[in-house]
């Protein structure tokens, strides 16, 4: 069943269009990766889906319902939560307060959501009373994900969760993403770290200059010559990916 459906999405900053008609979908239970170079429009796409940005045209459907005209705080309540690029934790509040904000929409903090989060991230349990701004980079990423899980999402949007982390932490974060997915949460994963993302994702899309230029099963894209050259750091000409377009460029 399609959980998230994005069709012909156009989003602009003032007069500058950043997405020129993007379409893709995520089925219930999947991990789908959205890849692309810096500035391709990945963050713009996620922020439009979560309601922080309004699309100029096109539509976003979540569990069948149009959500592209809804405000962000209502979209969260429907079960779609974004973990933003740069984490955006509430630095001068405690770890505990950050987590309780995740449960803001509920009358009381749900016990089982808290237990689940501390089982996934035992480090956070040890640091509940600490100011979030004093956590290490890896711990802050964990907190951003934990806080999002407190909203009990059906679909989690992750924007570059591995950004700026040491390799051992990157492995740990990806391991946790797989675990979250196994427990039943659908994941849309934005990454520049294409290697790891493609190993995790069932399907993937490649975004380039505001357009989807490639799509397919994760393992297949990982073998695709053009993707390997462009995003996996293999081959001599890193930006030569002309032959890889499976979707024709929009007129």
């Amino acid at each position: 069943m399609t959980l998230l459906g994005v069709r012909d999405l156009v989003t602009a900053y003032g007069s500058v269009e950043a997405l020129h008609g993007v379409s893709f979908h995520v089925d219930e239970g999947e991990i789908v990766a959205l890849l692309g170079a810096n500035g391709a429009g990945k963050t713009t796409a996620l922020r439009t889906i979560s309601g922080l940005l309004r699309p100029r045209s096109g539509e976003v459907r979540f569990a069948g319902d149009r959500i592209d005209t809804r405000p962000a705080h209502e979209i969260v309540r429907l079960g779609l939560t974004q973990v933003p690029e740069g984490r955006w934790i509430f630095t001068l509040m405690t770890v505990d307060e950050n987590l309780r904000l995740g449960a803001y929409a509920e009358p009381r903090v749900p016990r089982e959501a808290l237990d689940r989060v501390f089982a996934l991230f035992p480090r956070l349990a040890e640091r509940r009373g600490q100011l979030a701004g004093t956590l290490s980079g890896g711990e802050q990423q964990m907190l951003a994900m934990a806080r999002a899980l407190m909203t009990r999402p059906r679909l989690l949007l992750l924007d570059e969760p591995s950004m700026g982390l040491a390799p051992v932490l990157v492995r740990q974060i990806f391991h946790t993403i797989a675990e979250i997915n196994r427990e039943g949460t659908t994941v849309l994963l934005v990454e520049q770290n294409a290697n790891t993302a493609l190993r995790l994702a069932r399907r993937a899309y490649v975004l380039e200059n505001g357009r989807i230029v490639l799509e397919g099963p994760g393992a297949e894209l990982a073998r695709n010559e053009a993707v390997r050259r462009a995003y996996l750091g293999v081959g001599a000409r890193p930006r030569g990916r002309e032959g890889a377009r499976e979707r024709p460029p929009a007129p």
């Binding site: 309601g51 705080h73 939560t81 955006w88 001068l92 509040m93 803001y104």
Partner: peptide, 20 residues
Amino acid sequence: MAMRALAINQDAARLMGVDV
């Protein structure tokens, strides 16, 4: 708590379901 959160980062508060 929501007031303090949105003073730090309005969009982040929105993503937590706060009607800013």
